[in-house]
Design a binder for these strands. Sequence first.
DNA 1: AAGAATGATGGAATCGTTTCCATGAACGCA
DNA 2: TGCGTTCATGGAAACGATTCCATCATTCTT
Lengths: 328, 328
Amino acid sequence: MNARRTTIKDVAEAAGVGVATVSRVLSGGSASPETRERVLTVAAQLDYRPSALGRNLRQRRSGGIGLLVPDITDSFYGRLADGVLACARAAGEPVVLGTTGDDAEREAEQIGMLLEQGVDRVVAVPAGSAEIWEPTLRAGLTTVFAHRSAAGRDDVPAVLADDRAGVRTAVDYLTGLGHRRIAYLGGPGQEQRVSVFRQSLGALVDEELIVSARGSRDSAYAAAAGLFQHRPDLTAVLAGGNLLGEAAVLAAGELDLRVPKDLSLIMFDDVPWAELCAPPLTVIAQPAQDIGYRAAELVLRGGGRRPRGVLLPTELIVRGSCGPRRTA
Amino acid sequence: MNARRTTIKDVAEAAGVGVATVSRVLSGGSASPETRERVLTVAAQLDYRPSALGRNLRQRRSGGIGLLVPDITDSFYGRLADGVLACARAAGEPVVLGTTGDDAEREAEQIGMLLEQGVDRVVAVPAGSAEIWEPTLRAGLTTVFAHRSAAGRDDVPAVLADDRAGVRTAVDYLTGLGHRRIAYLGGPGQEQRVSVFRQSLGALVDEELIVSARGSRDSAYAAAAGLFQHRPDLTAVLAGGNLLGEAAVLAAGELDLRVPKDLSLIMFDDVPWAELCAPPLTVIAQPAQDIGYRAAELVLRGGGRRPRGVLLPTELIVRGSCGPRRTA
DNA sequence: AAGAATGATGGAATCGTTTCCATGAACGCA
DNA sequence: TGCGTTCATGGAAACGATTCCATCATTCTT
């Protein structure tokens, strides 16, 4: 089988014009109507599809957009990715996906691969801190952060859910129900939220009740179980993500803590199964898909020196996992 | 800013050798030890990273592997993708991701894009039927199907969970509990399973109890609700995927059907929230991640004309969503 | 010791596109 | 009518790698 792809040269020959003309016609340059017509028909006839390889090399950039998320298994990032894909598809751009596991080193490795591929636009949920991204940005990568931004990198546009409002709403809701010992069960890169949590809680804050897990399910479960065992006096928990929430529900069940009687639970991120739980989980919904879509939009618009980020609203969805403080 | 990338030419110059030599050293060709040494140090010093663009053009193929799944939001495909990513990362290959929404036309569009990008290896959960893939395969794409294969395309290797055994086990389990009117709630591309379902059920089969939804959550819910309302006499349901299972739980709740008292439920695919449900869901676990990993392995090994597929085991995990037939 | 075989090396071609530049035709204006 | 402008056009360079092939220095064989 020797089915070589048809190249621009073939089209040029068949249409009796030069390759330059074909290229111009196909990329919307100027050409006489009859020439344009002829080239177009011939191209269609030959089923010519320009090779991105040649174009990319010439233009020293691959059209694609890179997407870096901690864990594609996590439903939140799945939805975020879906948003990016939707936008990219509309723009006709391919998406190359990498996962970082919330590990700075792995993130750097993935960035290296993207750079090598000639990808020059990337949407990332940053794992590493500001300085990790320094060489990347210097290398000319158009970057947009999604879901969180790297500490101290306000020169990179970021598309975020309004965590501050979300945390505040959740805390207000819980304190309104009478809770005083409220825990925050966080994950990597949630310093922002933790600080707002402290701030919202004011004098009620108890540092022991602020725990942080690494990205994995195991780690989340360990953190939740440890927290519940160590501090049985707490009456409410704010879980900073659906993995954490899952772990909290699981650990609570394991320790025979009834929700919401013994323990009130609010989870960041509304996932389909939140409704299926018993009791259904009260959550702070985040527009994961929108975040991805907007981030992709921003990175595609690209060069426009407008490092303005976007803040998307969160929403408290009250279901059944929070109750008044148990008067033990 | 004029920070041009360092090219192989720069390295060659700095090391005082020809570009051919540099290329050879870097890709493991033959070279004298001292030359190799020198080139390597210079390359490291200059922080040289070969451009995939140049290489790909020359070799007329992009290194990357394409991944086509119906919906990255679906936890099953998320895990599958994770497996592919893991394998690709180990091999140092980028992954370009596309979603098909289980739509043949969209699938064709995505394939077109991959081809254009020079991607010549693809792992896909096929949406379209055999003939859709004909031109693709002829175009020289090394393809491996995952999770399901296209009807009548046994020339493409496929990595599958053992659906036959899974369905049979589930049906046997349910009939063993005394159930007679058992429904199958399926999705796109599950003809195989349906046929095994019929076969396992033998004389008990009731065509009205076999319903099929399209890919979306809405469609799944509609199918489940419709089924339950239309045939209140059924006592057990086998849901062919986590979206379907979710819909079944939701619809059952909506219609005040108690699980497992009024309705026994088995779901294909073990997801974390299955344990969190009340009652926890009995499931047929499928090794989604392995499926992805093995498929990626196969596609990377590639050319080896061995269209042998792989069949991975499923496992019935009994939790609490199935009970003896209600003796109404 | 002379010719053959081996191995390291660099120049140049190549991949498929875009884009710069020169050419020539057509046209308008004085 | 003559000259300058505009416009379509095609040839050729460039992008950054790989790889064919010729060259040259060794070493082996007889």
